[in-house]
Computed example of a mutant assay.
Amino acid sequence: MKQTSVVDDVTRAAVELFASQGYANTSVQQVVEAAGVTKGALYHYFQSKDDLLFGIYERLLSLQTERLTAIVARGEPTAETLRAVCVDVIETSVDFLLEGTVFFRSAHMLSAPRQQEVTRRRRAYHDTFAGIVERGQAEGLYRTDIPVAVLVAHFFSDVHYLSHWYKPEGPEDKTVLAHQLTDLFLVSIAASSASALASAAGSTASAEG
């Protein structure tokens, strides 16, 4: 059996079992039986169940990081770069919706070293994302009245909650959804949005005065 086949089979079985009955309630034996492999084969690629849970999320995180790097490397204007990154994050999150659901539900059960590794890699991704927003702020594209960290958290909070409400079999496919959420985010951080809010606030104050 090829390496990719074993890893894919084990990962798929683990995701389905973790999603249906919970990480804590799933044994390694159940995973190998569902995957149709031996424990020896599983432990050849995953040192523990903890390693398996980390691997489920690591595949998504690695993919998104590779795609982020490729998008930034194209050297397109800031607005186009940020839009492309946002759309990609949402589309890949939908593609790995079940994996993301399992991970965010069970991440607190990871060992301390694994949690630290996830935090480090997610921070690196978010820092690159924040850097694009900061560049746009310097160019006058995006609002500066709200900290960049808040703007970034605003976007990723929508992404992390996708599994709570989005259904792939629903009326809107991932591409439509990705552009809708991206449009909402970009409009909310546009410099013009801050100006409009300031103007509205000024008008209200004048009327009340």
Rank of each mutant, 00 (worst) to 15 (best):
Met1Leu: 14
Lys2His: 13
Gln3Trp: 01
Thr4Ala: 09
Val7Asp: 11
Asp8Met: 03
Asp8Thr: 13
Asp9Pro: 00
Val10Cys: 05
Ala13Phe: 11
Leu17Gly: 08
Phe18Lys: 05
Phe18Cys: 08
Ala19Gln: 12
Ser20Asp: 15
Gln21Cys: 08
Gly22Glu: 14
Tyr23Thr: 09
Ala24Phe: 03
Ala24Gln: 15
Gln29Pro: 00
Val31Ala: 10
Ala34Asp: 12
Ala35Phe: 13
Ala41Leu: 06
Tyr43His: 11
Tyr43Leu: 06
His44Tyr: 14
Phe46Ala: 06
Phe46Gly: 07
Gln47Lys: 12
Ser48His: 05
Asp51Gln: 07
Leu52Asn: 11
Leu53Gly: 09
Gly55Glu: 09
Tyr57Val: 05
Glu58Val: 00
Glu58Gly: 00
Glu58Trp: 08
Arg59Cys: 02
Ser62Ile: 02
Ser62Cys: 03
Ser62Lys: 12
Thr65Pro: 00
Glu66Pro: 01
Leu68Cys: 03
Leu68Phe: 15
Ala70Arg: 14
Ile71Asn: 09
Ile71Ala: 06
Ile71Glu: 09
Val72Trp: 08
Ala73Met: 07
Gly75Pro: 05
Gly75Lys: 06
Glu76Arg: 10
Thr81Lys: 02
Thr81Met: 05
Ala84Phe: 06
Cys86Pro: 08
Val87His: 04
Asp88Gln: 10
Asp88Pro: 01
Ile90Lys: 02
Thr92Ser: 14
Val94Cys: 11
Phe96Lys: 04
Phe96Ile: 00
Leu97Lys: 06
Val102Phe: 10
Phe103Ser: 04
Phe103Ile: 05
Phe103Pro: 03
Ala107Thr: 03
Ala107Glu: 15
Gln115Tyr: 04
Val118Trp: 06
Val118Cys: 05
His126Asp: 12
Gly131Thr: 10
Ile132Gly: 03
Arg135Glu: 14
Gly136Asn: 07
Gln137Cys: 05
Ala138Ile: 02
Glu139Ala: 12
Thr144Arg: 15
Val148Tyr: 09
Ala149Thr: 15
Val152Pro: 04
Ala153Phe: 08
Ala153Asp: 15
His154Asp: 15
Ser157Arg: 06
Asp158Phe: 12
His160Asn: 08
Tyr161Trp: 06
His164Pro: 00
Pro168Phe: 08
Pro168Thr: 04
Gly170Met: 06
Glu172Leu: 13
Glu172Asn: 07
Lys174Ile: 01
Lys174Gln: 09
Thr175Gln: 11
Thr175Arg: 13
His179Gly: 01
Thr182Lys: 09
Asp183Gln: 13
Leu186Ala: 03
Ser188Asn: 14
Ala190Met: 04
Ala194Met: 02
Ala196Met: 07
Ala198Cys: 01
Ser199Ala: 11
Ala201Leu: 05
Ser203Val: 04
Ser203Asn: 02
Glu208Asn: 01
